[in-house]
């Protein structure tokens, strides 16, 4: 039990340490899906937006948020879903994009395709399929090092 309500800045710091369940190198705040954190009286209200409407990770994400905040002593917690404005890859943080690339997933670009292979950095890449291992990813291949790789697709 915490004596005083933690500041919103503190709560954002805690959420920044919660990894995305599908791509654990980036956090939920890197992903840009935490829309808002507010105190409503003594209840902490966290607003979350889904990446894709059928994303199976959504319920796990809510569970992870709840677990993390409960561990910090938050007792009264309410999770809200907000659909509009719809989540866009523009909300991925710059540090999140860099972490994705280090992990081997090409970050999204408005141009609609990866800048280069996340492994060898060759710009000679080709698309295999717009649909990949999760709803948010597409399959690409590097024509230089021949490795297939995931591209976080732009929405």
């Amino acid at each position: 039990m915490v004596e005083e309500k933690p500041t919103l800045e503190t709560v954002w710091g805690w959420l920044d340490a919660v990894p995305d369940p599908e791509i654990p190198v980036i956090s939920l705040t890197d992903l840009g899906i935490i829309r808002d954190v507010q105190w409503q009286g003594d209840t902490l209200e966290v607003t979350v937006t889904p990446t894709y409407s059928g994303c199976p990770a959504t319920s796990i994400i809510n569970l992870d948020i709840e677990t993390a905040l409960r561990a910090k002593g938050i007792e009264k917690l309410s999770l809200k879903r907000q659909l509009s404005p719809a989540w866009t890859t523009d909300w991925l943080s710059e540090s999140g994009k860099a972490k994705l690339e280090d992990y081997g997933i090409a970050p999204p670009r408005p141009a609609g395709g990866p800048q280069h292979c996340p492994r060898c950095k060759s710009a000679k890449v080709e698309r295999i399929s717009q649909f990949g291992s999760t709803p948010c990813k597409a399959q690409w291949r590097c024509q230089s090092c021949l490795e297939p790789f995931d591209y976080f697709k732009c929405i």
Binding site: L83, S84, A86, T88, P135
Partner: peptide, 10 residues
């Protein structure tokens, strides 16, 4: 409108 905004991207 909110559901449509989400779905149109998919």
């Amino acid at each position: 409108a909110a559901i449509a905004e989400k779905a149109v991207k998919e």
